[in-house]
């Protein structure tokens, strides 16, 4: 399956990756085209009736007891934050 310029722009937007200019987008079209050509080998194999495998082990989810184990570490966690005030993380105005 070919990938087009518009697909790259769409993926870049969904992934919130800023692209400098059209040349950068074109570069990705070329790279991704090559990668997807290689990936397209998958299409040749018959997988009819094969269940998808998400995890290498056939394990099931372990549950933890409903207990509060964490205490307030706001100061520690916000020490590495780019912008905070009054305990809040700051972002440019959210418009609803």
């Amino acid at each position: 399956m070919a990938i087009e310029h518009a697909d790259v722009l769409r993926a870049a937007h969904l992934a919130r990756l800023g692209l400098k200019d059209d040349a950068e987008a074109h570069g990705y079209v070329d790279d991704l085209t090559h990668i997807l050509e290689m990936v397209d080998r998958l299409q040749a194999v018959d997988t009819e009736g094969v269940a998808p495998l998400s995890h290498p082990l056939d394990a099931t989810q372990r549950l933890r007891p409903d207990e509060v184990t964490e205490s307030n570490q706001r100061e520690t966690f916000q020490a590495c934050a780019p912008a905070t005030t009054e305990g809040l993380y700051l972002v440019p105005r959210v418009v609803e």
Binding site: E86, L90, V91, R93
Partner: peptide, 15 residues
């Protein structure tokens, strides 16, 4: 939650 009161022109995030 996003808090929309004005924090220096920014929104505050409480997680």
């Amino acid at each position: 939650k996003s808090l929309h009161e004005d924090f220096h022109g920014m929104s505050g995030i409480d997680l």
